[in-house]
């Protein structure tokens, strides 16, 4: 019984890659980067940048989140399927936010 399990069809979805172990050095660097990001985002909020304030804040948050996903959550070392899964979540989230906002920003169109 065990022999027939050895040669899995590569198309059948079992991607048995060697588990990649991320070490303390990488975690340390990411941790430091996250701390720097936090300091930056606090600092940026005290600067007068007009409409750019929220943009910068979101941008820094996105970079921090990406670092966490890629390294702490090992997505950088995961299979394509996992990367696609994360992408699908992000995509649907953006549809929810984007398409809802499309109604709100266009409600006053043509009425000024």
């Amino acid at each position: 019984m065990s022999e027939e399990f050895q040669n899995h069809d590569p198309n059948s979805g079992h991607t048995e890659t060697e588990q990649h172990i991320v070490g303390p050095a990488t975690y340390g660097i990411i941790f430091a980067a996250l701390l720097v990001g936090t300091a930056l985002t606090i600092g940026a909020s005290y600067l007068e940048m007009g409409a750019w304030n929220p943009v910068v804040a979101i941008l820094i948050a996105c970079i921090k989140a990406t670092l966490v996903v890629l390294f702490f959550m090992h997505i950088k070392y995961s299979s394509k399927l996992m990367k696609l899964t994360v992408g699908a979540g992000l995509f649907t989230f953006l549809i929810l936010v984007g398409m809802s906002l499309s109604d709100y920003i266009s409600r006053a169109w043509g009425q000024w």
Partner: peptide
């Protein structure tokens, strides 16, 4: 993941225009 949520909540809730 819970950490990531906080990474967004912090600037959105605490840091709106501190200047």
């Amino acid at each position: 993941f819970v950490d990531i949520v906080w990474i967004f909540l912090f600037p959105l809730l605490y840091l709106i225009s501190r200047h």
